[in-house]
C-alpha cells in the first residue's frame, strides 16, 4: 500500500485552516510587496493630520512651485502643497473601498448563495445582476448620483452596487458546481443539514475566487471615485480626493503637470498594491487546488 508522503496536518478548526491559506499569500514576494505598499499608504493617510497638522489647506503665495524637497509634487494654484493634498486624498479612496467592497462582498455572496434556499429567489437575483451588468458602469454611477446627490455616500453606493454582481455571480457559480459535486451529494445522503453543507463544503470553495475578486473590486472602486470626481459628480471640492485633485489639476496641466501626475501616481500605486495582493491570493488558492 503506497500512500504518498504529505505532511500530516494537525487537527484544527476548518475556518482557521482557510484563513491560514489566505495569510500564506502575504508571505510570498508579491503578497509582501503589495501588502507592504498598501500598509504604507494606509498609514500615511491615517497619520497625515498628525504629521502635517493643518498643512492640507494651508495656502501661500507660492502658487505653482515646481517639485522640490519641501514640496515633492510642487504647489497648486493657491500655493497648497500637492503632495500633502494627495496623501489626504488617499483617505477618501481607501475609506470608500474598505467600506463599500466588503459590504458588497457579503451581500453579493449571500445573494448568490440564495439559490440554495429558494431557487426562485436565486434566479431573481441573477436577473438583477444581469440588469446591473447591462448598465455601462459610469451610467449606473450617474443614476445613483442623481438619486442620492454627489458625495461620499453616493460613491460608496455606486461602488457597492457595481461590485455586487461580480460577487453574486462567483458565489452562484460556486454553488452550482459544488451542489452537483458527489461529495455534497454524499453529505446530503448522510443527512448533513443544509447549513452545515453550506459552511463546510460550499462556502470554503466559493471563498477563493471571491476574495481574489474583492481585491480587484477595490481597484475598480478607487478608479470609479476618480472618474466620477473628475467630472464633478463625486467628491465635491475643496475636499481633496484623487478625483477632485485631477478635476482641478487638468485645468492647470500646462503650468503644473505634477498637479495631474501626482494623483495619478498614487492611483497607480494603489492599483498596483491591490493587483499584487490579488495575484498572490490567486496563486495561493490555485496552489492548494492543484496539490
Amino acid at each position: 500500500m503506497t500512500i504518498q508522503d504529505t505532511d500530516i496536518p494537525r487537527r484544527r478548526a476548518f475556518l482557521s485552516e482557510g484563513l491560514r491559506r489566505y495569510l500564506a499569500a502575504f508571505r510570498t514576494p508579491r503578497g509582501l510587496i503589495g501588502g507592504g505598499l498598501l500598509a504604507i499608504m494606509c498609514l500615511a493617510a491615517l497619520l497625515a493630520p498628525v504629521v502635517f497638522p493643518g498643512a492640507v489647506d494651508a495656502q501661500s503665495r507660492d502658487s505653482f512651485l515646481g517639485p522640490s524637497l519641501t514640496h515633492p509634487f510642487g504647489t497648486d494654484e493657491l500655493g497648497r502643497d500637492i503632495f500633502i493634498r494627495c496623501i489626504y486624498a488617499l483617505r477618501i479612496s481607501i475609506s470608500l473601498v474598505i467600506v463599500a467592497v466588503p459590504i458588497a462582498m457579503v451581500i453579493g455572496t449571500l445573494m448568490g448563495l440564495a439559490g440554495a434556499i429558494s431557487p426562485a429567489l436565486g434566479d431573481a437575483f441573477q436577473r438583477l445582476f444581469d440588469i446591473i451588468l447591462g448598465f455601462p458602469s459610469l451610467i449606473l454611477g450617474i443614476c445613483i448620483v442623481v438619486a442620492i446627490g454627489p458625495g461620499w455616500i453616493a460613491l460608496a453606493v455606486t461602488i457597492a452596487i457595481f461590485s455586487l454582481p461580480q460577487f453574486g455571480r462567483l458565489a452562484r457559480g460556486a454553488l452550482l458546481t459544488e451542489e452537483g459535486r458527489e461529495y455534497v451529494l454524499a453529505a446530503r445522503v448522510l443527512g448533513v443539514g443544509k447549513r452545515k453543507i453550506m459552511t463546510r463544503h460550499i462556502l470554503p470553495n466559493a471563498m477563493d475566487p471571491i476574495l481574489v475578486q474583492a481585491s480587484l473590486a477595490m481597484i475598480g472602486g478607487i478608479f470609479a471615485e476618480a472618474a466620477l470626481s473628475i467630472v464633478g459628480l463625486g467628491i465635491q471640492p475643496p475636499t481633496p480626493s484623487l478625483g477632485t485633485l485631477l478635476n482641478v489639476g487638468i485645468r492647470y496641466v500646462y503650468v503644473q503637470p505634477m498637479y495631474t501626475a501626482g494623483p495619478i501616481i498614487l492611483l497607480l500605486l494603489l492599483a498596483l498594491a491591490f493587483n499584487l495582493i490579488s495575484d498572490a491570493l490567486n496563486a495561493a488558492v490555485m496552489k492548494t487546488r492543484n496539490d
Partner: peptide, 18 residues
C-alpha cells in the same frame, strides 16, 4: 488595470505636455 480616464490623463501628460 488602467481605466480610460487614467489612460487619458497619462496620454495627456506624455504626448500632450512632455
Amino acid at each position: 488595470a488602467t481605466p480610460p480616464h487614467v489612460t487619458g490623463l497619462i496620454l495627456i501628460l506624455i504626448l500632450g505636455i512632455s
